[in-house]
Computed example of a mutant assay.
Amino acid sequence: MTQAQISRPKIKLWMAAIKPPMYSVAIMPIWVGTAVAFAQTKVFNVAVFSTFVAAAILILAWENISNDVFDSETGIDQNKHHSLVNLTGNKPLMFWLGNLCLIGGLLGILAIAIWQQDPTVIGLILLCCGLGYLYQGPPFRLGYQGLGEIICFFAFGPLAVAAAYYSQTQNWSMTSLAASLIVGIATSLILFCSHFHQVKDDIAAGKRSPIVRLGTAKGSQLLNWFTGSIYPLTLLFVLWGIFPVWTLLSWLSLPYAFKLCRHVQQNHHQPDKVSNCKFIAVKVHFWSCLLFGLGFMF
């Protein structure tokens, strides 16, 4: 066996641990909040947007790294070969690397607040970080009580979108609040899908995720409603005159939504086959939010 053959599985584990596609979760709330601001003001501050995106990516990196660190303390990741702690065997290193990412991200948001001489944005993002810690950090670990999706909805929906909108306008908007509902649901969808394949590990670690509470069959049925709600809700806000008609471009992501629901419906009880459903959910999130934001830009 060649060195390349030996290293290939290791590379796949590292890519699974780093989760590059997941970072769209950090970018899309900033994109949508900025797009709503542009639609209403016709102003697009590129420097603020770029700084915010970079900071959001670093903050999400902190959340992903620290999640592996905190999960290593409960034993829930003992079968998760792509955990950063399991890959490196060095929990303190990962803990401090995560904290460095958090500090770097907050410094970026602080820079925006200083430019604008307004602490509102840093306050909103600190609240998001606080929710992120409540989700995963001891002694709270609210994700273990099945509250992760609710926390995710508010952190990546209303709070993050409002912060992005405010960073561009230094003002508030009911339209951005309505848009944040779409982003929040689409983001929570990813977390919801991540539970289907790890029910046994969650039960063993005492984690009462929604799928543990409902069972995979009921969870797959709820997923249909959960995913489908994004599209009629967008249409409803268009009919009310809150969203421009161009936001219906987000409906072009429907093929991914159908694929996700069909895949989970067929394989919800087979962990090996359903484990990739969160990546289909990432595609639903990415394309629906990207096209949704473009609708405001147009």
Rank of each mutant, 00 (worst) to 15 (best):
I6E: 15
M15D: 07
V25S: 06
S83R: 09
S72Q: 11
N67L: 07
K12S: 12
L13C: 07
W62T: 00
I27F: 10
D71G: 08
I57R: 01
A4Q: 15
A39S: 13
A56H: 04
G75L: 09
A35W: 01
I27M: 08
T41W: 09
F38Q: 02
F38V: 00
A35G: 04
A37S: 07
S50Q: 11
G33F: 02
V43R: 07
A37M: 02
L60N: 11
S66I: 03
A61P: 00
S50P: 06
V43P: 06
V85W: 07
Q40N: 10
H82N: 15
P20Y: 05
G75I: 05
N90H: 12
G33W: 00
L13I: 11
I11E: 12
L87R: 04
T41M: 10
P29C: 13
M22W: 08
K91T: 09
T34A: 09
N45P: 11
G33V: 00
M15Q: 10
W62Q: 03
G33P: 08
Q40H: 10
W62S: 01
A26L: 00
Q5R: 14
L13M: 12
A17H: 03
P29M: 12
V25R: 00
T88G: 09
A37I: 01
V46D: 08
N45A: 11
R8E: 15
I27Y: 04
K19A: 14
G33K: 00
A61W: 02
L87S: 06
E73T: 13
L58H: 00
I76A: 15
I59E: 00
D77N: 10
Q3F: 15
L84M: 13
I59Q: 00
A56T: 06
S24N: 12
V53N: 02
E63I: 01
V32P: 01
V53D: 04
F52K: 04
L13V: 10
D68R: 03
F38E: 02
F52P: 05
A4N: 13
T41Q: 09
T74V: 15
N86F: 10
I76T: 14
F49P: 11
W14Y: 12
I30S: 01
S83W: 10
V53H: 01
K42E: 05
I30G: 02
P9K: 11
A47Y: 13
A61Y: 02
K12H: 14
N64Y: 09
S72G: 11
F49E: 04
V85A: 03
I6R: 14
L84R: 05
K12E: 12
K19L: 12
F52L: 13
T74L: 12
I11V: 15
Q78H: 14
N45K: 05
A47I: 13
A37Y: 03
M15C: 10
A55V: 03
A17M: 05
S72L: 11
K12A: 14
W62H: 03
N86K: 10
N67T: 12
H81R: 14
M15K: 12
H82G: 07
F44K: 07
K10D: 12
N45L: 08
K12N: 13
W62K: 00
K80P: 05
I76D: 06
F38D: 03
K10V: 15
L58K: 03
A54R: 07
I11D: 11
A35T: 01
E63Q: 08
S83K: 07
S72I: 14
N79C: 12
F44W: 15
N45G: 09
S72W: 13
M28E: 05
P21Q: 13
H82P: 01
V36T: 00
Q40G: 09
F49I: 09
